[in-house]
Simulated scan of single mutants.
Amino acid sequence: MADKPKVLVTRRWPEAVEAKLKELYDVTLNESDVPMTADEMRQALMDYDAFCPTVSDKVDASVLDVEGARTKIIASYGVGYSHIDTDAAKKAGFIVTNTPEVLSNCTADLAITLMLAAARRVGEGERELRAGKWTGWRPTHMIGTRVSGGTFGVLGFGRIGREAAKKAHFGFGMKVIYFDAFPVKPELAAETGAESRDSIEAVLAEADVVTLHMPGGKDNYHLINEARLKLMKPTAILVNTARGEVVDGNALAAALKAGTIGGAGLDVFEGEPKIIPALLECENAVLLPHLGSATLSTREDMGWRVMENLEAYFKGEAPRDRVA
Rank of each mutant, 00 (worst) to 15 (best):
N309Y: 01
V268F: 10
K230S: 09
S62R: 12
D60H: 08
S148C: 12
L310Y: 01
E40G: 01
E124T: 13
L288E: 07
L24R: 15
D301V: 02
Y221C: 04
L29N: 03
G93L: 02
K166T: 10
P5Q: 11
V17I: 13
I237S: 00
Y25T: 06
A131F: 01
Y221T: 12
M142G: 00
N240C: 01
A242K: 05
G303D: 04
N309I: 08
P186R: 11
N225V: 12
A236F: 03
E195N: 08
C106D: 15
N225E: 13
A75Y: 09
A181W: 02
I73P: 07
H141F: 11
E272Q: 15
E126H: 15
A89H: 02
K22P: 01
R121P: 09
M232K: 03
S82G: 08
I177Q: 05
W134Y: 06
C52H: 01
A165V: 08
A190V: 13
R42H: 07
E31V: 12
N220I: 08
M142Y: 01
G68M: 09
A254F: 01
C106Q: 14
I276L: 09
A89N: 06
V147R: 07
T211M: 08
I261M: 05
S293K: 00
V147A: 04
D198F: 01
V9M: 12
I237F: 00
E191N: 07
A118H: 10
N250C: 01
K91V: 08
D26G: 08
I143Y: 06
L256Y: 08
T298R: 00
F157C: 09
A92L: 02
G244S: 05
G93V: 00
I84C: 07
K230M: 03
G217E: 09
E124Q: 15
V209Y: 05
G161D: 11
L114K: 11
E187L: 02
L129G: 04
L29S: 04
M302R: 09
D248F: 03
K4E: 05
P234H: 04
T235D: 11
R162K: 14
P14T: 08
N30M: 00
V34A: 09
C106V: 13
P183R: 13
E101L: 06
Y77I: 05
R305T: 15
P273D: 07
P14G: 02
E283Y: 02
V210S: 03
R12I: 11
A242S: 15
G161F: 10
K315C: 00
K22F: 00
D65Q: 15
E101Q: 07
E126T: 15
D60P: 07
V210L: 04
G171A: 06
L116E: 13
K257S: 09
Y77P: 04
R228Y: 14
L310V: 10
A258N: 10
G171M: 04
R197L: 09
L252D: 07
V203E: 10
R138H: 06
L8T: 10
V63S: 11
F157P: 07
G217I: 12
A69N: 10
K257I: 00
A205W: 03
P100V: 04
